[in-house]
Design a protein around this nucleic acid. Structure first.
Length: 274
DNA sequence: ATTGAGCGG
C-alpha cells in the first residue's frame, strides 16, 4: 500500500498569515510545498533584525508562476553547496505553506518541508528549508534564528541540516566548556568574542535559551578545536568579565558520548537456522 | 534559571 500515493494537492489558495491564528489542522496531502508565489499581497512581518539581501531583496518577479516553461525556483542553485537548514520547535499546524510564507520574501527559498509521522500524518515538529545557495541559507540562519516567528510568541529555531543526506559537516573533534553566570544581554556572539581574541581555536559559542520565550537561561557553552586551549580557558577565564558579570566556568557534561552504543545486537536463535 | 539539542528523502 502506498498511503500517500498520487495526488498532491498544493492547489489551495495561499493562506494569508492571519489564517494561521485559527490553528488550522495540517493538510496531510502536502508532502512538500514547492514555491508558488502568493497571488494576493504577500504577508509581511518584521524580524528582529533586517536581512541584508543586497539588491535582489524584495521583488521576486511573478514570471515563474506555475508554468512548465518558466524556470523553476530550483534553477540557479548550486547542488554542491550546503543549502538546507533544519528548523525545529514547530507547532503541529505549521505546515509547508506556513514555512514558505515565512521565507518567501527572501526570494531565495527553493522548498520547505515538514517531517510527518507516516501513520498519523502529524508533524514531528521539525522540517527542512532548502535555499538557492549556501550564502542565502546562511543569511537566513543568522537573521531569523532566534527571531520571532510570525503570529506566534515563539522564536525560530534553526540550524544547518547536518544529519543524513550526505550533508555531513565537520567531524573534527571539539572540546567544550560550560560557562555560567551569564548576564541577560550575553548572546552567542558576545560569548564567542569573549574567548576568541585569546583562544584562536574557538569554534563557536552557544548561550542556552528558553525554547518558547527565547530568553537566556544564564549559561552556555564554548567549543574549542584545541584541547590545550580548552584546558587553559577553564582556569584562565574563570571569573573573567563577560559583558557585566564574571563568568563561572566548569567542565561541560558530555552531551554525546563518544562511543555510539550498538543496539539490537541480541542474537535470535532463528538466525542460527538460516 | 546554571550542563544544549530537535535532522528526512
Amino acid at each position: 500500500m502506498m498511503p500517500q500515493s498520487g495526488v498532491v494537492q498544493p492547489a489551495m489558495a495561499p493562506m494569508s498569515i492571519d489564517q494561521y491564528q485559527q490553528q488550522a489542522p495540517p493538510t496531510q496531502q502536502q508532502q512538500q510545498w514547492m514555491m508558488q508565489p502568493p497571488q494576493a499581497q504577500q504577508p509581511q512581518f518584521q524580524p528582529q533584525a533586517q536581512p541584508s539581501w543586497g539588491q535582489q531583496q524584495q521583488q521576486q518577479p511573478m514570471s515563474q508562476q506555475y508554468g512548465a516553461t518558466n524556470p523553476s525556483p530550483s534553477s540557479n542553485v548550486n547542488p554542491n553547496e550546503l543549502r538546507s537548514l533544519w528548523i525545529g520547535d514547530l507547532q503541529y499546524w505549521m505546515d509547508e505553506n506556513y514555512l514558505s510564507t515565512c521565507f518567501y520574501h527572501t526570494g531565495e527559498l527553493v522548498s520547505a518541508k515538514v517531517i510527518r509521522n507516516k501513520q498519523s500524518g502529524q508533524s514531528e515538529g521539525y522540517g527542512f528549508l532548502e535555499f538557492r545557495s549556501h550564502a542565502a541559507a546562511e543569511t537566513v540562519l543568522q537573521t531569523y534564528n532566534g527571531a520571532l516567528m510570525p503570529n506566534v510568541e515563539q522564536n525560530f529555531r534553526m540550524n544547518w541540516a547536518s544529519l543524513g543526506a550526505g550533508e555531513r559537516r565537520d567531524d573534527s573533534p571539539e572540546y567544550t566548556i560550560f560557562v555560567g553566570d551569564l548576564a541577560a544581554d550575553v548572546t552567542d556572539y558576545v560569548l564567542q568574542e569573549t574567548f576568541k581574541p585569546v583562544y584562536s581555536s574557538v569554534k563557536g559559542a552557544k548561550v542556552v535559551t528558553d525554547r518558547i520565550t527565547g530568553r537566556t537561561k544564564g549559561y552556555g557553552f564554548v567549543k574549542f578545536a584545541d584541547e590545550s586551549e580548552q584546558l587553559r580557558a577553564m582556569t584562565e577565564m574563570n571569573g573573567v568579565l563577560c559583558s557585566s558579570r564574571p563568568m563561572r566556568i566548569g567542565p561541560a557534561a558530555n552531551k554525546k558520548p563518544m562511543g555510539t552504543p550498538q543496539k539490537g545486537m541480541a542474537v535470535s536463535p532463528f538466525h542460527l537456522l538460516c
